[in-house]
Design a protein around this nucleic acid. Sequence first.
DNA 1: GCCCAGGTGGGTA
DNA 2: TACCCACATGGG
Length: 208
Amino acid sequence: MVNYEMVFERLYENYGPQGWWPANSKFEISVGAILTQNTMWRNVVVSIKSLENAGLMEPYRMYIASSEKLARLIRPSGFPKLKAGRLKNFLSFFSEFSFDFEGLDRFDTEVLSELLLKVNGIGKETANSMLLYIFERPVFISDAYSRRLFSRIGIRENVEVEHIIKDPKMLGEFHALLVQHSKVYCRSKPICQKCPLLSVCEYGAKYV
DNA sequence: GCCCAGGTGGGTA
DNA sequence: TACCCACATGGG
């Protein structure tokens, strides 16, 4: 029977530690989490550099910057007007906590999650990314990749991943590994003999 | 030219 | 609840 731990181990052995989330600060993680919505990370990096160069990778500076200016700077990562608005929404929320992540850290995970989800433009995946990579809370980031992969390799048990893998460090690696693996294998490709998950497939999945 | 990317929110049935 | 769609740019 395939389980989450087996998948984690196989991926970790194959790809090694991923070192997510790549960022120079907690604030940069939150910005990246919003910018990467439905967007390739490569393009997000360009936007982040632009913000950095413009001196806006700092909460208050970004808070007082115009939406037009933000949109121009983040253009490479797509949906510029939309995401400029979302960044502003987040900053407006963040300002209520004096732009202080420590202040937010006193809330328990459930409450913090609800607070984040109230921000327009922060949905479940973005909120979970922040909870896991900024606040180091034990949450699993479910996304299109993980859902597809788990269903393909036959994990159907209705148990939350974080009930099995409880260490935020490992949950962070797990999500990163799933994304990494998907970049390599999760396309409509014919079966690949080198797929590290081949041996844990429960049934004859053609690819994972 | 076509499809997809580390989603989200709003609308309709 | 379950789909549909807009949002936009860049790369394969």
